[in-house]
Amino acid sequence: MTTPGEPRRNLLYLLPVLVFAGLAGFLYQGLYLHPSEIPSPLIGKPAPAFDLPAVEGLPGGLSRADLEGKVSLVSVFASWCGPCRLEHPLLMALAEKKRLPIYGISYKDRPEDSRGWLQSLGNPYDKIGADRDGRVGFDWGVYGVPETYLIDRQGNVAFKVVGPLTPEVLESQVLPLAARLMK
């Protein structure tokens, strides 16, 4: 190794790493400006009024009245949505335990596709409403599918999950909250 240069010069060589350190700080902050972190302004407020027809060939139809008087879960899904498939087994498992009713809103989906989807994967929903043009989704503030809403006894939105449900979110947030609301 040759002798290091004079100290002043060495500081110049430090510059790149210092610039990068600053940059990294901003990038880290940038990660948490993520759109999925947005809480729903609907939380704590009554769920929007709606009255959806049934998906053709399936029992049901879903309206605001169905959500009153009990704690329930409303899941917005579509057969064309990849992440919905990921969360589907969780909903199936939850439905088997029968701890709370699960309602579905079939979002911008063709009835035959919705039916095929539920036939092959199982139907966890107690009732399904068909929102073919997405108007109800708009009122609910659906950014994309899937989204899941926890509704309390008074019909207010208590919690919202954007994107697919995961076992962690379900076990640590949704179900404990549901249990408290049911007391």
Binding site: T2, P4, G5, R9, N10, Y13, P16, V17, A24, L31
Partner: peptide, 28 residues
Amino acid sequence: PARGVFILGFLLVVVGGSLTLYAVRAPA
């Protein structure tokens, strides 16, 4: 975001580490 945190950490090691090495060794 979970992926973002990982990549950022990786970036920190690869870029930060190499630039630190550079600051130490390049003057020579």
